Structures are given as C-alpha cells and as structure tokens.
Amino acid sequence: MANPTYDITILGSGPVGCALALSLADAAPDPARIALAGPAPTPRPSGQAIDPRALALNHGSRRFLETLGAWPTRAADILSVHVSQAGHLGRTLIDHRELNVPRLGCVVAYDDLLDTLYAAVRRSGVTILPERPQRPLAGSPVHLRLADGPCSTRLALLSDGARPQGLRREYGQHAVLATVRAAAPDPGLAFERFTRTGPLALLPHPAGADLYSLVWCVPPERAQALQDLSNTAFDAALQAAFGQRLGRLQRIGETHAFPLSLHAGPSVLGQGLVAVGNAAQTLHPVAGQGLNLGLRDAAQLAQVLRPWLAQPDTPVQSLLEHHARQRRADRALTLGITDMLPRVFATANPLLRHACGLGLAALDLLPALRKPLAHHLLQGQRL
C-alpha cells in the first residue's frame, strides 16, 4: 500500500486548528507532511465597524501563543476580575498581583487572532488545503475526500467545531454580543455579574481604552428583543442590568446573538481520529474558558505527538489514548465549573441565591478558597 499523503491532517482552520498546526510544525522534520484543511480567513475591508466578537485569553494561553509567534499586536489586558450577583450582597475580586503574574489574561478581537495565526501557518511550511472536507471515518490510514480527489493521512485531528456527540445540555439562554462605550472606564478591570437571567460580562476591548466587549446571557426571546431595541433603549436596559460602576454605557456597532448549550464527547473517536477544541467540547461562555481549554488540548496533543513525528511509521494509537487520559481531569473540571455557575446563580430558589452571595463573600475573604479557582481560570491544568 502506498504511503499516506500526509502524516497528520487537521480538519478545521479556526484558532485551535491553526495553533495545533503551528505546534506540530515546530516538531516535525518535514512540516509539509502536516496539512491544515479549512477555508482561509475572509478578508476584511478597511474601515469596517468594530466586530463585537472578542475573545478572553488567559495568561497560559497568551504564553502558548507567544511561543508560536502568533500573538496579535492589539490586546487589552485584564488585570482584575470583579465578580458580583445582582440584587444580593457579596462579591469577590481576583487580582493579578495575588497570583504573581503580569496580567490575568487579555482580550483580543477574533479576527485579529485568526489572521495572526493563519499568517504564521503560511510561514511554517505546513500544507494548506483551503477547503472544508467531510469528516472522515476512522481507519489506518484515514481516508479523506477533497475537491481535487481522495487522499489519506495517518492521523486526522478534528477541530472543525462540529458538535461532539455525548453529554448535552441546553441552557435556555442566548449570548448577546455587543461593543459598548463607558463614560467612566476602569482600565484593566473586567466584570462578571450574575443576574436572574444569566451572567453578564464586560471585558476591556482591544479597540479602545473606553470600550468594553459585552457578553450578556438571557432567554432567547429576551435576546431577540434586545437586538431589536434602539440604541437608547438598549443602553437603558444594559444600565439597569449592570449598574453605574462604569458610568453611562452606550452600544456601538452591531449586536449578535447565539444559543448556548453544552456538548462534550470523547477525545479519541477511533483509529487515527482525535477531537480537540470545539470538536471535543463546547462550553457556556461564563468565565471565558472555551477557547482556553481548546488551546490546552492543542498544546498537550502536540507535545504527546512530538516523538512520533520523527518516526511516523510506528504505532500511534496508544499515544492518542494517553493524551485522552492526560486531558480528562482538566476537561472535567473546566466543564464542571462552566456548567455549574450559570445554572446555580440563575436559580429561582431564594435560599440558594443568598448562599451564592455568601459564597462570593467567602471567596473574597478567604484566599485559600479563592486562589485554587483563580489559578485554574488563569491557566488550567498543564503538563
């Protein structure tokens, strides 16, 4: 049988797929034996309005992307995070100085991050297949069907964002995304405010010191109503939900909304098939952990495959199973945190809501409780 066309093919050219391609290329004797399959980023016209899709990357993710030479030039630092519950006493503050890091994380524009990563992939020597092939079946090798004809690969790494099969939960919420201008900005301070309808986050925006990226989780009908509001009415609704901490808030640019659900499945899908990022798990956006978890998937999978890349004729399935075991604890803890928080804080039970407020107060007063949670949100579990 002829040798496979590629040693590794990554299906999905989003941020996780690009980061995985760069990590593998760094260790591969011949980066051209690694293929990245997926469409190139869409060119953006100059003067385009500010895109509300902004991503919170924690300290560990920034360090990882910097080692790949793929950190975007624009980023807004997150130095502290203020966590509160609407209508109840108790709040907690997580600060970078307590964890001895220069920042907790950064906010970057989605387009900036993807453009930077894709440009780095182009320079890396990785083969680019600018199309989205169908998901392959497991096999040895794995067979792919492309527009130019069939090809094969020893490993297919899925990062295409298709919903994983397994655990599923519908939250009955949509995330409303917008960019807002604050009359009294507080540089470096991000907010996570839990309301009866879901969490509301305001994050420093890389496009301006007085701008914030809004992620507002509400029931579907409320999300549609918010999108339909005039700027004046939207601003009033946001002000009522968030408060006066940043002064007057004004929406600028477009507003988007998308449904929220949890999907999680196995990392290893069969012989020669591995899922990472959103292909392995999609999370509620509370605490901004989805992309950070996906980047940890990519970093650790590339590390596990480094010795195999030098001898791709050797068996690899045991390494893939080892990778799945390594990722189990980090995935379970991150899924647990992001699944529990929006459901517990949105409860209608008054006693439980008061208990949540007391919990925030306890986190603020007791570093022994706060630091483990803060450390996980800072970088997750890394090897």
Rank of each mutant, 00 (worst) to 15 (best):
R122F: 09
H256M: 06
E254K: 08
D115H: 12
Q300H: 11
N231L: 13
G149M: 07
G166I: 10
T9N: 11
A329G: 01
L117E: 07
P164T: 10
P133K: 09
V83D: 01
D148E: 15
V276E: 00
H82E: 09
P185E: 00
L157F: 03
F191L: 14
G290S: 04
L89M: 13
T338F: 05
D210G: 05
Q381D: 08
A120F: 07
P130F: 09
G90N: 13
Q300I: 13
Q48D: 12
S318C: 06
T73E: 14
L55D: 03
I252S: 11
Q250H: 15
R91E: 15
S318W: 03
L65S: 07
A223V: 03
Q379W: 09
R33Y: 02
P312Q: 09
E321L: 12
G288V: 02
S267F: 14
T116N: 06
P350H: 10
A182S: 11
A280I: 11
L341F: 12
R145N: 12
R222M: 10
H354N: 13
Q326E: 13
S84R: 14
Q281P: 02
L57P: 07
L203R: 04
T282Y: 00
L352K: 08
H88W: 14
T338D: 08
Q271Y: 02
E170C: 07
G12L: 09
G288W: 03
F258L: 12
T232H: 11
R343Y: 05
R135Q: 15
I337D: 00
A70N: 05
D51V: 01
A54C: 09
R370Q: 05
S84L: 08
I8L: 14
A223C: 11
R145V: 10
G359W: 01
F242D: 02
A25C: 05
D313V: 12
T232E: 14
T9K: 07
L293D: 01
A178P: 03
A240V: 12
R62V: 13
L117A: 11
A361R: 13
Y6N: 02
E192P: 08
R331Q: 15
H96S: 09
L24A: 07
Q303A: 15
G336F: 10
G357Q: 05
D26P: 03
